[in-house]
């Protein structure tokens, strides 16, 4: 009985390895090779008219050190931090309480998060223009309630970009926190209360501490994309807020300087890798909560 079971298991295991081959091929073809190409490209020169000149240079990286580009990185980081902060502030309670709800309400709350995904992110961002523009929905509501007496002119401002970012990144945070809070054993909270902790102390010493991996993974999952979500800054921030993502896109399309764009991307990638390293060090896990 036991013997046949083991045999069946080992057969299935060897079958698994066969099934993994397409995944490796896919990863090498579409992830590893493009990244390698990107790094190689970043050490090459831009050709006079079109394409790339195959001569080695470090100029692309030197150029990033120019104040203009350093400032762009700094602005991007600042915006990413700000957006991530608000994403955590809203997303953590949402995800945490969603995990505590009954099965029916869980489904409803999840649906609320999923529905926006049925439409293109671009179209949803144009929706925010209607809200933010002068005499738009927001202004009308605020003026109707006599909270303000003139249009706020929020469109093409920094806050508008932050709102757009937070809006786009919130689902990642919520799902990350949710998957972590879902696993939280409530008897631990009860034990903490039983041992003399107020509900607030029990939350900080037990619940929060045990859902921290979810929060941190949500932070990573929001922070990394927010460095590259240039179209949000473009649509809601006009040309006033320039992010690394926008510069990269501009260098490829308008500047036709692929090597420089590659160098910028490489730096961005290294920065985000450092973030993930940090996350692993703090939480001691290698997996991001909420990612399947």
């Amino acid at each position: 009985m036991t013997k046949t079971k083991t045999k069946g298991n080992s057969r299935r295991r060897s079958g698994n390895i066969g099934l993994l081959i397409p995944m490796y091929v896919f990863t090498i073809l579409f992830v590893a090779l493009p990244i390698l190409y990107l790094f190689l490209l970043s050490f090459l020169q831009r050709a006079q008219v079109w394409g790339v000149d195959f001569t080695f240079t470090l100029d692309n990286y030197k150029r990033i050190l120019e104040p203009l580009y350093l400032d762009t990185f700094w602005q991007s980081l600042k915006l990413a931090f700000t957006a991530t902060f608000f994403v955590a502030l809203i997303g953590y309670p949402y995800g945490y309480f969603m995990a505590r709800m009954s099965a029916v309400w869980k489904r409803r709350m999840l649906l609320l998060i999923m529905i926006p995904f049925w439409t293109s992110a671009l179209i949803r961002l144009y929706g925010w223009i209607i809200v933010f523009r002068s005499n738009g929905v927001l202004d009308k509501i605020l003026m109707g309630l006599h909270l303000t007496d003139q249009p706020l002119k929020l469109l093409y401002t920094y806050p508008a970009v932050v709102v757009g970012m937070v809006y786009s990144l919130l689902p990642f945070m919520i799902l990350a926190v949710y998957s972590s809070a879902e696993k939280l054993d409530m008897s631990l909270v009860e034990a903490s209360r039983d041992l003399g902790a107020s509900s607030w102390t029990a939350f900080w010493t037990v619940s929060f501490r045990l859902t921290l991996p979810g929060l941190l993974s949500g932070v990573v999952l929001s922070f990394i994309p927010s460095m590259g979500l240039f179209f949000i800054a473009d649509i809601l921030g006009g040309n006033k807020i320039v992010l690394v993502g926008s510069v990269i896109q501009e260098q490829i399309t308008k500047g036709r300087n692929q090597p420089f764009a590659a160098a910028l991307s490489a730096v961005l990638m290294v920065l985000t890798s450092v973030m993930i390293r940090l996350y692993r060090k703090i939480t001691g896990t290698s997996q991001l909560e909420g990612m399947l």
Partner: peptide
Amino acid sequence: VNTVFQNYALFPH
């Protein structure tokens, strides 16, 4: 009053 829980409920962290 203190409780010894069925699943022990030791804080894993």
